[in-house]
């Protein structure tokens, strides 16, 4: 359950943030580094891995964007954005120094505490790695608290893998990374195939002691869950991050409802058991 991001604040209030840095990731996707203009707000800023904010371009609108940065880095907020609609198109066209609005953070978070002492598998597809990156940072900062850490990351082709520049560093810090793509030429040294194929053959120390988190297209997440269950990982240890359009982010507007849930309030991160019975119902 989401906590109030700022108690006693009007939840409709956007805070001005300045674009302090832009990282071009893959075609159509970039990461913005944002800094609050109001130092008081900057001082109270904190988020949990998996949460999102509403980024606002005046005159264009708001869009829910997952936070892809390090929760320990309190100075700036990093958010990875795919140019997909009006607002994100506008966000991806802004220069350094431009001011936009930010509300949040909102929503539920990944179970980083529950994962302590266990093996953790992260399964990311495409831009789904963005909301999982804060988990990676967190776990690598507290590496000794976790057992085996594995990231299975899928993309359409090698050029569309997100954050490849960080893989080497993460590997040295103790993250086992298995990239896999749908299409590749001879130059690609990684795997070809879907993430479920990799999960299918991944060596598991103890399935009962393994936690899995996934974010990506719904179809991918569904089959990832089926594969994980087939490998003996308990349903209660599976987590996924869902996506629907969000308009208010504070469970007042109704847009992001999915079955009994408001994705902005109970989600975006869910325990698989919460969604198991409704995930494959058409047009829910």
């Amino acid at each position: 359950m989401a906590a109030t991001c700022e108690p006693n604040q009007n939840p409709w209030l956007s805070h001005s943030v300045r674009i302090a840095g832009i990282t071009r990731e893959i075609p159509g996707v970039l990461t913005l580094d944002l800094e609050f203009e109001d130092s008081a707000r900057a001082a109270t800023w904190a988020f949990r891995p998996g949460q999102f904010t509403m980024l606002y371009v005046p005159g264009v609108g708001e869009s829910a964007i997952s936070i892809s940065g390090d929760a320990a880095d309190t100075g700036r907020i990093r958010q990875t954005i795919r140019d997909a609609g009006n607002v994100t198109h506008s966000l991806t066209g802004l220069p350094i120094g431009a001011t936009i609005g930010l509300r949040g953070p909102f929503g539920s978070s990944w179970p980083v505490d529950e994962c302590r002492g266990r093996d953790v598998i992260l399964v990311a597809g495409g831009i789904g790695l963005a909301p999982l990156r804060p988990v990676i940072y967190h776990m690598l900062h507290h590496r000794q608290q976790y057992q085996e850490l594995t990231l299975i990351v899928g993309a359409r082709d090698p050029a569309l893998l997100l954050y490849p520049g960080e893989f080497e560093h993460w590997r040295t810090q103790g993250l086992n990374i298995i990239p896999t793509v749908d299409h590749a030429d001879e130059s690609w040294r990684g795997g070809v195939g879907v993430v479920t194929t990799v999960l299918e053959r991944l060596w598991l120390r103890s399935p009962a002691e393994t936690m899995l988190m996934t974010c990506g297209p719904e179809v991918m997440m569904w089959y990832t869950m089926q594969t994980a269950l087939g490998r003996g990982i308990p349903a209660g240890s599976l987590f996924l991050s869902m996506e629907r359009n969000m308009n208010c982010a504070i469970a007042l507007c109704g847009h992001c409802q999915f079955g009994p849930y408001f994705l902005c309030r109970e989600g975006p991160v869910f325990r698989f058991e919460q969604l198991r019975s409704i995930l494959r119902i058409d047009d829910l």
Binding site: G28, G85, G125, A155, V194, T197, E200, P217, V219
Partner: peptide, 20 residues
């Protein structure tokens, strides 16, 4: 059969960009 399912998912091209 498992490989067929995987191939189907691959065929779905789930990471394809779907612009609004």
């Amino acid at each position: 059969s498992r490989r067929l399912v995987a191939t189907r998912i691959q065929l779905l091209d789930v990471f394809a960009e779907r612009r609004n």
